[in-house]
């Protein structure tokens, strides 16, 4: 399996990575305009307000696009996943393929190489409302 490089964390986004270590996916929401955004910033990229706050995401979404690279054990799948809260985030798809655009997925957390845990996504099971 591919080694996940440790994220280069900055103080602005430390809560996101601490939550990831605890198995929770956070998303930033702006209290001024009500919009969610990703990647998380102190300043809302839509309205410019500094009144942004962390929210826990449901952890579910849909595959927007994806591409598998590499062969055998080294193969991995880059993807854009659109969270149910709205933002689309870059991630990996893990678990059983084949994958498809529009497919329902749920977050999982994988360890990185000496750093914080990293959110990735796997296809939802039927019980999860796929």
């Amino acid at each position: 399996m591919r080694t996940i490089p440790a994220p280069m964390v900055q103080p602005e986004t430390m809560p996101y990575w601490q939550a990831a270590d605890a198995g929770r996916l956070l998303v930033k929401r702006c209290a001024a305009c009500g919009e969610h955004h990703h990647y998380p910033r102190d300043i809302c990229p839509f309205c410019g307000s500094a009144a942004t706050e962390w929210r826990e995401a449901a952890g579910t979404g849909r595959v927007y696009s994806f591409s598998t690279m590499g062969e055998g054990e080294a193969a991995y799948t880059l993807a854009y996943v659109t969270l149910d809260e709205g933002p689309t985030m870059l991630s990996n798809l893990v678990g059983e393929g084949p994958f498809a655009c529009g497919q329902r997925v749920r977050v999982r957390f994988l360890p990185s190489d000496g750093g914080h845990a990293v959110p990735v996504f796997a296809p939802c099971t039927d019980a999860e409302g796929a």
């Binding site: 591919r2 996940i4 490089p5 440790a6 994220p7 280069m8 964390v9 900055q10 602005e12 986004t13 990575w17 990703h38 990647y39 910033r41 927007y64 696009s65 994806f66 591409s67 598998t68 690279m69 991995y76 880059l78 993807a79 854009y80 985030m89 870059l90 991630s91 990996n92 655009c101 990185s112 990293v118 990735v120």
Partner: peptide, 27 residues
């Protein structure tokens, strides 16, 4: 550059030039 804020949310996932363009083709 570790000061690029977006890279923490991208590099762990292995974006190469090829797979980023491939996602556009897929969509």
């Amino acid at each position: 550059d570790p000061d690029c804020p977006e890279l923490a949310f991208e590099l762990p996932y292995g974006p190469a030039t090829q797979n980023l363009y491939a996602m556009v083709a897929r969509r």
